[in-house]
Design a protein around this nucleic acid. Structure first.
Lengths: 338, 338
DNA sequence: CTGAAAGCGCTTACAG
DNA sequence: CTGAAAGCGCTTACAG
């Protein structure tokens, strides 16, 4: 592959001049510029980003570590993150932690070794020593969706409190009193907050949330299945199951169906995180939708601010309730846009 | 961040010795090794991958360009690609083309500028001049799923011919004679091959495939919707719609529902590419499943072979039919594993 | 076994 | 406006 030296030789100038032309430095004569550009064209020259990065100490690359690529919520987040990053002149490298803390650490380490300019993380756990070191070590970092208390970096996330309240009120209005929740891992903030918001909303309506109605999940389908089986085996099973993410809702649906029960007639179902497929499930699933695109954009902008020396903003955006048939509510007429 | 010089100073050796220890070069004294390792530990030193890449002219990085991350088929492919690559000591950078050729070129260019060691591509189109240049220019490259005739690189893909034949026989057995297909973009191989396999299978059973029963799609849901609306407006609408990918099947389902028709009673539906959600749609969707994990692994291995100077293998694996309710077949008892 | 030195491909003060 | 030179952080023949 042609190097800057080859271009300089071809154009009859020094490599410094070539570099200046390539970086649009103002003080280059029109003639030199033309000759360089012609040489670049003739040789099909492309600057070596590795060399440039070594020299400038910046890679124009962002790392994005998410907990599970197979979860459509994160896939969508990643897609919008890349889009916004591209608009700001950055590439992004995605690391998929698969909800495994050690894999998360592996990706963080790899990304740091590659000297990415900044890190966007949706932590799979309560925060490894490594993540703490990275944050303290001065690598620009922003949490998105999930965050870790005690690590002082900007957080961009959705607040589901209002939407959960709406959901509980909706279910209460339909006459339901026994509501159960499948929680996410206690080590994640989204795991806890959703349970708290739920408990709070229940309390507001004078409803109890017994421990037996709190299932422990890990954001994966299988755990939703297990938790739901346990609910259904109870002497007094719940009338509603609320899953703290979409995959666990799918597991819940499996378990309910395996028991030969119908949704919502025998038991109602709702989920945190709305995804296009929920319109097409049997029945369509009531969900709490996050403003994913806006979150992604805000997170990238906060990270770019941090990298480029501006003051970053933590952002919290409200989630909203989308009622569909699974909760026994009116079917909405929604269509998938994809 | 500490550099190799700092480590050398701390350990009281030269940078050459530090480098040798880090790269497990045999000729280093036990004592030097111990001192270097201690210094590395003390300083929390991590080698700068950018500098190493510049010097060694290899990045231990693979580029993966897929046509649409939001399509669960590609998400899954990407996941397994990363897994296998990691096992072989490579990182992967994903570029999402969003089915847009110019975005695909953008990602290819960026990846080449970063001097990735090899490129895995599932082309969104018939092949840009850039892609041709890259292949010719000596960058190790492998096509996965989709490929481009005339670009001579290994291809790893699924062969759906048998499964499509099974599908058509299944539908024929249920008494259906008027089968329609929603094709993918003519510029993609998977777009064409699936139509050809379908036509072939129909011919084998003495069935005609009139042009009106071939809808033109682009692998996105909206195009599946449009094509299906057109089918349904026909004087003699088809009894079955077969979508050449999962997203178009979703669009078809939308269109059918919007007309107030039921699947499979009023019209049957099947799709190429099986995804976990198809178990949960209303009704569950009959699909042709690709061995995604195996394809991903074979593709990465072929690329690694190419990079490391071994002889790569093109691989074709059979897809298989999974019958569910949407085709009017027996419901299978399948569960989502996630 | 070890170190001094060259060099990967760039960018950027510095001097002119 | 331009070029020679230093240097980013590594690796690796070469000499000892």
């Amino acid at each position: 592959m042609a190097s800057i030296k080859d271009v300089a030789a071809e154009a009859g100038v020094s490599v410094a001049t070539v570099s200046r032309v390539l970086n649009s430095h103002p003080s280059v004569s029109e003639e030199a510029r033309t000759r360089v550009l012609a040489a670049v064209e003739a040789l099909g020259y492309r600057p070596n980003a590795v060399a440039r990065s070594l020299r400038t100490a910046q890679t124009r690359t962002l790392g994005l570590v998410i907990s599970d690529v197979l979860n459509p919520y994160f896939t969508e987040l990643a897609r919008f993150v890349e889009e916004e990053a591209r608009a700001l002149g950055y590439s992004v490298i995605i690391g998929n932690a698969d909800e495994r803390p050690e894999l998360q650490d592996h990706h963080i380490r790899t990304l740091i070794d590659r000297r990415i300019d900044g890190l966007l993380v949706s932590p799979a756990d309560g925060g490894s020593p490594l993540m703490r070191d990275v944050a303290l070590g001065g690598t620009p970092m922003v949490f998105v969706d999930r965050w870790i208390p005690g690590i002082d970096v900007p957080v961009v996330r959705a607040d589901g409190t209002g939407a959960v309240k709406d959901l509980v009120a909706h279910l209460h209005g339909l006459g339901h009193r026994r509501l159960a929740i499948i929680a996410g891992p206690a080590a994640t903030t989204t795991g806890n907050e959703r349970v708290e918001a739920f408990r709070e909303a229940m309390r507001g309506l004078g409803l109890a949330l017994p421990d037996a109605y709190i299932g422990q999940g890990d954001f994966q389908a299988a755990s939703g299945r297990r938790a739901t089986e346990r609910f259904l085996a109870l002497a007094e099973p719940p009338e509603v199951v609320f899953a703290a993410d979409n995959l666990m809702a799918l597991g819940a649906l499996d378990a309910i169906r395996a028991r030969g029960l119908r949704v919502p007639d025998d038991i109602a179902l709702a989920a945190f995180d709305d995804i296009p497929w929920f319109v097409h499930t049997d029945p369509p699933i009531t969900a709490i939708a996050q403003p994913t695109a806006d979150l992604a954009r805000a997170a990238v902008r906060a990270l770019a601010d941090l990298i480029e020396g501006r003051t970053p903003q933590s952002v919290t955006l409200p989630a909203r309730l989308v009622v569909r048939r699974s909760s026994g509510g009116a079917a909405t007429n929604q269509r998938s846009d994809r």
